[in-house]
Design a protein around this nucleic acid. Sequence first.
DNA 1: GATTAATGTG
Length: 797
Amino acid sequence: MNPLIKSFCQSRTYMRSLFLLKRLLHISKPEISTFPSILKSCSSLPSLDAAFVNHGYLIKSGGFGCCGNVGNDLLWMYVKHEEFRDAYKVFEEMPIRCSGVVFDSIIHWLRLNRTYEDVVIAFEKMVKFCVFPSVQSLCHVIRAYSDLNSIERGHFVHDYVKQNGFDDHALIMNLLISMYVKMGRLDLAQQVFDKVIHKDIVSWNSLITGYAQNRNWPKVFYLFLCLRQAENLVPNVVTFLALLSSAGHSREVGIGMSIHGYLICMGLYLDVQLGTAIFDMYAKCERLDYAQIVFEKDLINKTLVSWNALIATYKQKGYSQEAADVYERIVMEPNVKPDSFSFANVLPAYANLGNIQRIKSIHCVIIKRALGMEGDVVLATAMLDAYGKCSDVKASELLFACIHHPNTATWNALISVYNLNNQIENGMIIFREMVRHKVLLDPITMVTLFQSCGQMGSLKQGNMIHGFSLLKGFYSHLIVGNALIDMYMRCGCTKGAEVFFHSMPAENIVTWNTMIYGYMKVGCFSAGLRLFHQMQSEKEYIPDSVTIVSLLQGSLAISASYVELFHAFILKLGLASETLVMNTLIDSFAKIGIIEKARALFTQNDFKKDQSSWNIMIAGYGLNGQGTKSSKLFAQMQENGYVPDSITFTSLLSSCSHCGLIEDGCKFFDLMITKYKIQPTMEHWTCIIDMLGRANGLEEAYDVIRSGIYQNSSKCVPLDSIAVWGALLSACRTNMNMKVGELAGQKLSKMKSDCLYHSLLSNLYSSNKKWDEATDIRRVFGDGKVMKKPGLSSLKS
DNA sequence: GATTAATGTG
């Protein structure tokens, strides 16, 4: 019967041959030589049913499987039916060669439906079978290798290209250049480039973009000069994009401008992509004036990239609201859909604005659109940071755990989140993990760590990190030096700060501000003032808003008349339109008791009021015993469209606590928890406990906290938390209640909040002039030094 | 063959 089946196949009467096979199966076992014909019949039939039946039979009869030509034909059959999934299954089981055409089809399917790894595995198997791929297939394979990011495996395909005579093929060689660029191996990319005999513009562009991506700007500009000497080659859009990006990143506005001029001559400046790149170059070079002209006049058809670049520029310059506005504008545009670049740019802006709702909604969009945050480190880092800045540490931690390949920035961001949320110990744990995982440390890591040490007030840790940064060669970075000074100042070690300050290889206004701010913080007012004069006379720095804010905050401890003096300074320096400066000035007037002056400044319209202006004024009224005015202003603030935040309630509660408005205070506290869903912080609890203490004494507050939960109409808040015990300890300090304070301290020490416990308890002891006890605590925890009432000693000198 | 992104000092 076997020859008969074959002849039916040859005469293309496929149904008949299959019918015969069915009969044959009832009587005896068919010969294996029959199957190629059968499978060919199946390939040509419209339905797959017969194919499945026959494949199943082949599997059942054991030995046949995917051997020899049968396997090959089986593969063909599935490829013809475009059933690549099954084809791939057969392929995986095949012990010997198959045809190149079939293979190309499989590579094509794998590329569209599976991972790069699968493409690479298939290719390596193909090489083992000695099957030749088409050039097109080989291109796909090299792209897959690029995405695998494994240098050993990259060499495999490179060797294959060399051994099989593909190395005079420009397309293949260009892809190899790109592959090495993607792997960050510019040395190897350069080697391939040098070997290309007939270089085309793509070869040059691949290498130039490679150097641009790896931030080797001089090489980019050098290669461009070489390119212009090469015959018959004209740089194109891709070349200029790389050049403009390099000019922007390296702040080479001169180079950027000449490229701009060149493009105008060539008539290319109206190209959207180039226009966006020109805008971005000027923005990065701090030439916002030129950038604005390009954006408004030349960029007629703006793309999503143009808008993203604008968001990035606003965000970088600190204009968070403007960045958010642009984002909201593109969300409304019918034909534009924000992408991961838009999100990564706008998230820090929303984080600065404290707009957690927007952050959450962007998170939802990312999930809905399946943008795969786990694989996009930059986007995930921005999201992690945004949650952390809005105090959702849990969300940040969860995100961190999900990210497939966290990089240095991700780790840095996590430490920074812990710093922001007073969980310094956790940050230190993360740093140790970083070292253990051999994560590359960068200057920002050092800055973040100095911040941790400064916040802890631990000179011991600070010295350690200082030594560490010397060892790793980070100390010459300006931002690291500035952070180091800040750390020493926050630890109360003015000597350490001064020594480093005088030995710095480079400095800027931030350095001077940090010194001044530090002196003010520890109460060395005269030393700060001396530097303030010195920076103007010797260095010709013009004091900026930060300088003035530092001086204002320090002057409070000294004399009220200084506030008036600095007010005059602010007017002279033209800083009266700066929100931060005016907020501090209002705060200062309120604190020295000149509430009328504070009110007058607050109501004038010479500066843009923000949320914290309102918060400051609410607290200011409270400080001056005008608690009812605080409540009125609170209502007025909401009428002006502001949603009260955590600090608003801190201001309100402290106002009530100051003015003895206990009932109002409790009402605001309930409102905060139930309506605004704000988690009470230690500051809130401090006010509440202070009020409780005033009414019935801190002993009773202690009993209330120990007994469990704070209850109101709809919400239960557990009281047995670090924040609440910390608040009790704080309240004990202001009320000089050692007995309850020590009880609270014991409680905290059991809750593993070493940092908070130590600093609060040592403050309690210092306030009660129990220096020895305070020193003991600091010795166990940190540097063993205790600042005796900051400022007093330095005032005398 | 390609442009735009995240973490940080006062």
